[in-house]
């Protein structure tokens, strides 16, 4: 077997091993990687920063544990910013496995600021069928969510007394790992025209930039890099910034593999000629 054939036939387990080592390096040797903030992330930060104390903002935790790594840091940083500014978040989830996770992040951040459920924030819980739920929230939150996650009727929640639909909110951000972000654009923005921002996984990010450019969403936080940018802006010490050195070493290794495989590919093509 020639050298270039060997390069193209490396056992995948060697690749996993080298990647594993690359991920472990920052766990042993800590180093700092600067994070540049992109305009689309800054717009989300500025939007929330410009809200007044007491304003109501919707935060959708529309992801499940499989996407926790990328979206949970965004949720922590955004809720931290809301509570720091005395903004009242209405939180709900359109992901079937998101209910417990959303409750965890919300109660954890709320406890740090001594915020009370029903007065400083409202957690509505989960409802299935995202498109229908979004459209019904545009009519009245009481239709899809007659009571909150803890079983309290919405009308008995002081914060929600005068909140009926998207007109009573200052804006919406959906942290999503699936089709719910599309539903938010189509059935939320497309029908009710409320200010909408999205936080999406890295895999989805490229698909959502056209909506940013068309003005259908005012901001976009993409993947763990976006989460790190948001943490840098809010000065929240979370998992986003922590994971950037790991991302850097891993990306260097992946780039090296891409270069090696391309050298192997072009060399084998030349030898065939």
């Amino acid at each position: 077997m020639k050298w270039h054939e060997k390069m193209l036939n490396i056992d995948r387990r060697w690749i996993y091993l080298i990647l594993g080592v690359a991920v472990i390096v920052p766990a042993v040797v800590s180093f700092h990687v600067p994070v540049n903030v992109t305009p689309e992330v800054r717009r989300v930060y500025d939007f929330i920063e410009d809200l007044k104390p007491g304003d109501i903002f919707y935060v959708g935790i529309d992801y499940d544990p499989a996407s926790l790594a990328e979206l949970h840091p965004m949720a922590y940083a955004i809720l931290d910013q809301c509570f720091r500014k005395d903004i009242k978040p209405v939180v709900a989830t359109l992901s079937q496995f998101g209910a417990g996770m959303a409750e965890q992040v919300l109660s954890e951040v709320a406890a740090e600021y001594g915020k009370e459920s029903g007065i400083d924030y409202c957690y509505l819980g989960y409802k299935p069928y995202p498109a229908i739920t979004i459209m019904l929230m545009g009519v009245d939150f009481r239709v899809p969510f007659p009571q909150d996650y803890y079983g309290t009727p919405i009308d008995s929640i002081p914060m929600m007394r005068y909140v009926h639909n998207f007109d009573d909110l200052k804006g919406v951000i959906s942290l999503s790992a699936g089709t719910s972000s599309e539903f938010w654009i189509i059935y939320g923005y497309g029908r009710y025209f409320m200010p909408l921002a999205l936080g999406v996984t890295g895999v989805m990010a490229a698909d959502y930039y056209p909506y940013l450019q068309s003005g259908q969403i005012f901001g976009l936080i993409s993947g763990i890099k976006g989460a790190a940018e948001y943490e840098a802006l809010t000065e929240y010490k979370g998992e986003g910034l922590k994971s950037i050195p790991y991302q850097t070493t891993t990306h260097v290794v992946i780039l090296a593999f891409i270069i090696v495989s391309n050298i192997g590919y072009f060399a084998s093509r030349r030898s065939k000629k």
């Binding site: 990647l19 991920v23 472990i24 766990a27 499989a66 926790l68 790594a69 990328e70 996984t201 890295g202 895999v203 993947g223 763990i224 890099k225 998992e239 922590k242 994971s243 790991y246 991302q247 891993t250 990306h251 992946i254």
Partner: peptide, 13 residues
């Protein structure tokens, strides 16, 4: 790639 690596990194952390 960034997304997949994020999943791995979160577990390693």
């Amino acid at each position: 790639v960034m997304g997949r690596v994020a999943l791995l990194v979160q577990r390693i952390i």
